[in-house]
Design a binder for these strands. Structure first.
Lengths: 196, 196, 196, 196
DNA sequence: GATGAATGAGACTTCATTCAT
DNA sequence: TATGAATGAAGTCTCATTCAT
């Protein structure tokens, strides 16, 4: 029991890591098996296809995202939560400059697929982030919270992509600062929760 | 000669198109050959490796970008040029929602590569766009023109990625409107060209 | 003990059924284990190799054949016994049209094998049927009883194969009627049992 | 052209031969490639899947059957044609005793498949033989010509299977003689061709 | 005896690249 | 130049069998 679950976990984490670094297409089952220290043939006991492993990698990223937002939820002020999110992004600047945003880059790859049902999976994880972000803007009482969420998350995806393409972590820092300033500049909205 | 050049051209265009739609890894030489109506064996006369074909696809995207900015340069007002750029992006909303930004998605794929020298190629094309954009902001006399360029191009990459991941062209429209508003809100800076 | 024997039995029956339906090569140990509701790892306690399981399936078919002929032996007239055999075949027409004769189709598959000793096993089961049939013809006092047995059993194998290949149970009915007619047309031979 | 066609031919013949000897499931692409003296990777240039190769093997058997019946058609008397068919079968007795009827055994294997569309293919080849046979009986003016065809072809499949299962070519000879006698015993029917 | 997990050989298939005309 | 054909190195996946509790 323990062992089985542990190995599944190891495989999932290894898949998340290696796929982030090499991309889904260039990553072989053998790569993941090696990274997880599991014999190749045994991988299929836990995940029946490579696609299932990629889905698991995506799930792992969703889990990590959940841990991040879960921690931020402890902050009282929604604005502080959003600023905390931006700071977390910036703290990952070196990884972003080398490999991009794990979910965003995976979305790019998977969206090219016509078949397999995996092509919409990454979108779902991104929507989790959008939804959480929108919730913060709504709590701030700002108008068009989902538009603001698109803007913030879009900015993150854009700066990650540029940092990656230019191989320059400073892009993350500079744009992160700008986003912090933007969040600070937003007015305090009407906090009265929408009736119904 | 003419024929040969024409075939090169056809292959380049086909590569740009097919690679944009399927991604570099999932695209086979045969796919491109078929799209260009060139026999498989003949491809190698024009491009010695698949990487060269991908580079050619990138070059084609750079060419198309050049045509776009070239057209915009005819406008007198830099602010109008930038707004024209945004409008051009939005006009491509359906393609973006399906396949993302050609250069951005290619950058994501190629940046995962450790070897081959192709990993930095996409960054160069993106820099062309950044440079042109920065030039407009500078001409407007605004401070930190390269930061502004990062912001504008980043926003484009971000909204393309989100539109693609969510399969929703409306993301392009909404964020495009926001960018137009932002550009309009920017103050008229000091137009005195930097002495240098 | 009881339990163990019961499991052996379940496995044998499951093997007979699944191998008949899917063929020996396409049937996996896991298929049989699932059909017998036995954990995969446990199968090997009862049958050391897959070949042993296939042999067991063959044994099960032999057992069922024995039950059939055993019942027919209760009939006083050998001719009636043979007609009963044919009727039993025809009653299985739907199964035959879908999967063929269990023993015959298994013989076809196993006979292709050069090694393992299993290649002659199916022949032995078929010989059981031939021997019983020959005995009936002999009891009828007919000349060349083993030739007649070959004819009858061959007709059965042939009509099963055709019914299966054409996916048409009517083949069994039509040819069954013909065989009944043939059996009825055979003269009453000299019943004096062969001395020695 | 010549080369390509020749290799396709070689592969088809090799597939027919090896699949007959080893069975479709136990035959690997490598086996066929080796038998045809073609590099494994090259096989796929001619046949996109293993199933296509098996279908080609079946086609080869159909072709050989066509050559046989084509030759027999030169005989004036339909009864002689049928007797010629039986004699041809008997002449193959050693192959039949070792590997069975090529088409019949392939039908047995393929009929176990639920998917792929190959499961009905062998039935089609067998029907070719049935149709030709039925035509002869009809020309003889006999009633129920398709029932007679089922009987004759069924007898062939049955005796091939028994000869194979018992590893005894004599089964072919004995049953062949019986069939010849049966054909000779059939009355000369009404030769008036059916109006219509 | 019972069982989930482990293992490794081997099968099918794809594809970038090269070759022979 | 042009082209169908050739080649071989991977990669994904399956499965009989074995192992460790």
């Amino acid at each position: 029991m323990r062992t089985a679950t542990a190995k599944r976990q190891r495989l999932m984490e290894a898949a998340a890591r290696v796929v982030h670094q090499q991309g889904a297409e260039r990553t072989t089952i053998a790569d993941i098996a090696r990274a997880a220290d599991v014999p190749v043939g045994n991988v299929y006991y836990y995940y029946k296809t490579k696609d299932e492993l990629v889905a698991a990698a995506l799930g792992e990223h969703a889990r990590q995202l959940g841990m991040l937002t879960g921690g931020l939820d402890l902050l009282a002020d929604p604005r502080e939560r959003l600023k905390g999110l931006v700071k977390a992004w910036v703290s990952q600047r070196d990884v972003a400059a080398r490999y991009g945003c794990p979910t965003g880059t995976l979305a790019v790859e998977l969206d090219k697929r016509a078949e397999g049902g995996l092509d919409a999976e990454a979108g779902r994880v991104i929507r989790l982030l959008l939804d959480w972000t929108e919730r913060q803007f709504r709590e701030l009482g700002l108008p068009d919270p989902d538009g603001l969420a698109l803007t913030l998350v879009g900015a993150y995806q854009g700066m990650s992509l540029l940092a990656n393409a230019l191989r320059d972590p400073a892009v993350m820092t500079r744009q992160g600062d700008r986003l912090i300033g933007w969040l600070d500049s937003l007015p305090e909205g009407d906090r009265t929760p929408a009736a119904g």
